[in-house]
Nucleic acid binder design. Sequence first.
RNA 1: GCCAGUUUAGCUCAGUGGUAGAGCAACGGUUUUGUAAACCGUCGGUCGUCGGUUCAAAUCCGACAACUGGCUCCA
Length: 628
Amino acid sequence: MQEDRKSLDDRQKLTDLERIRHSCAHVLATAILRLWPEAQFAAGPPVENGFYYDVELRHRIAPEDFPAIEAEMKAEIKANHVFEKRIVTRAQAIKDSESGRLGGLSERPGNPSKFKLGNLEAIPEGEPISYYQNGDFIDLCAGPHVLRTGNIGAFKLTHVASAYYKGDERNPQLQRIYGTAFKTRKELDDHFAMLEEARRRDHRKIGAELGLFTIDPDYTGPGLPLWLPKGGAILEELEKLAKETEFAAGYVRVKTPHLAKEKMYQTSGHLPYYAESMFPPMELAEGGESLKRESAQAGSITQRGNDSTKYYLKAMNCPHHHRIFAAEPRSYRDLPLRLAEYGTCYRYEQSGELFGLMRVRSLNMNDAHLYCAPEQFAAEFNAVNEMYLKYFKIFGIEKYVMRFSTSAPEGLGRKYVNEPALWKQTEDMVRGVLVDAKINFVEVPNEAAFYGPKIDVQVWSVIGREFTLATNQVDFAVPKRFGLVYKDRDNVEKTPLCIHRAPLGTHERFIGFLIEHYAGNFPLWLAPDQVRVLTIGDDPALVSYAKGIVQELRASLVRADGDFGTDKINGKIQRAELAKVHTMLVIGPRDLAANAVSLRVHGQGNLGAKPKGAVIEDLLAAIKERRA
RNA sequence: GCCAGUUUAGCUCAGUGGUAGAGCAACGGUUUUGUAAACCGUCGGUCGUCGGUUCAAAUCCGACAACUGGCUCCA
């Protein structure tokens, strides 16, 4: 996109590391040309963790080609060529593109540098056009680069992907070769160690190992996770936390159906703009006739008739809550009205976008809608933010950014509802709350929702993976579309503001995040297996004592079980440790005699024998306090 | 959706045209145990699905499906 093009000023701000990576991209192109002189190059920028270069080439580059390419790259680095900058005229650049010289090692008659030609067209008149040359390789490039190829530290090619020229699917598809580079070998090694740790913590891997959830593409469908009992335990703990927190904050809970008539989403404005992201409608006749399955094989339930009605699975809860607001006349005395629900929504994400629990088609949202008068807005919004911070503290989320997305004047009436005064008012209020609360935020113009400004919460797990977890939006448009009003003090009907908020996001994404955040080692209150009692041997007296402990814990709603079999104690401990059971109580004859338990905590090892009563008391307290 | 890769037992994987394998898990038995795996045995697979080539296909070819990595950060 033209408007996203980096300005020359921005380019001069490239960090040293970005210069190294961008330079390494040129070296990559040089190496590919040594092996395949006909290759045509498009773009080769530095990116977050490295760099890439897009290349058009008949030969399909595979990881098996990497050693040969890397060897050529090393030779180019060893040659220590200078990155020479030259300003040229547009005419000269066009001529060099047509001869195939640009993005090549020499002129290539009959093989013009077509992508470079396209790139040239994107450079505005009046902006200088520059070449960078290392050895024989000349590239159209604004720079900046390191001084010499020898200044590139340690690098490695990582993977191949495909990408459309200029990101547009109507353009030719190119091979994108990714690599990464660092100043030193050690930094490169650390980077790969971090990636390895990320793979180890992958929520899909740990989720399967611990039996938290499963995805069954054949029967249930892709993107529709099934929560297994152990994942269900985490889910219930989160809901309990949300219910307690919201109750204390004056929310009321509601429950709404999973589907609604077409009219609902026409009124909300989500149809037709959001239709692509919704599951296709179910069509059926009014009047209570039984459903006729016209095409059972295709799985659709259809009844065509003159008065047929379409039902849609809900992609969001807000319209349902709006109808609850509308269900009875509202007075200013009813406000703020805070409707909360763990609502299940369905979104038809494209097949290629599905990703474990992070991107799914059925999602349980920690949703709530707060209806308030404008003068109540700041206090309500502030309270929502405080709730976010409270949650971050419980989960030990230290690194986060709130992305405050605002409107842009040129989008009013098109991308955004045409209410300039309300936009200014709500944006000022939100900004004021963020500043007063000293919250870490960045303001992003021209990214608001069509009905109001929004805040997306981005968090980083301990391994540095970024997640957009939660969202918090102001809505001053949709309540109007639904005709929602309250009777104010002055006996005038007014439209309330609505705050959409979901501090815990969805169960799917939040639990996915927590799995990676904790590497599956959940704190006691969240752990699917909180306590396991292990007997040394299966002597009946021991087993009876151990069973009593399990029963006592379960009576206090602790997820406790026992391993009373004939396996050796080492085997029982190994199994419990691999299952990441939080607390293990080992019971042998010595413990039975002393009315004690031997305490072992996952990750902490054997903590020795302690009085039974004290251990149970402390477990209950730790769970109640949601101790980290 | 598009491009590429992958798909063999519940899990992790071996098997490149000639009788489908291992470890773990599960199940049965033996073992009576003090802090990360006791021992023996048994069960378990239309090699993702469908079609083609071949005397013969997990293996070669094609289609489809699912999964994984990308497709935004642009000379």
